[in-house]
Design a binder for these strands. Sequence first.
DNA 1: CCTGAGCGT
Length: 145
Amino acid sequence: MAMALRTAVAAAAAPRGFRRLFSTTFTPPFNPPSASVAAQQREKAEPSTNLFVSGLSKRTTTEKLHEAFSQFGEVVHAKVVTDRVSGYSKGFGFVRYATLEDAAKGIEGMDGKFLDGWVIFAEYARPRQPPTPPENNMYTPYGHQ
DNA sequence: CCTGAGCGT
């Protein structure tokens, strides 16, 4: 029995609806200004003395952060965020300058620079949640009467 | 020890 092995034609049944998929007039991915409040989280925060520093090396400590940013202004407070359980740095931190001017100089001076072998990014930190909301309850922290 | 976007115990 001679089996004529004919070349199997790769009959790829190509759908005929793909040629107009990209021809359809679609709306450009532009976010309307009437976006929800979720948009402000992605945008850069307004000038503040508080700086958010990311891209830090896991070995960079609070001292090193304070030391590095002190070159461009009066650093009032600096801290590298570390994990509570592991104790290691999360790779980012916060730096607070005395004035907005120093904060601006700190960003211009440290943003995109190297620190411990890593390119760091300095920007204005977002307004954090209100610090320790006082108990508005009937119970006074100074001892109930 | 650290693999890598991010907004703080």
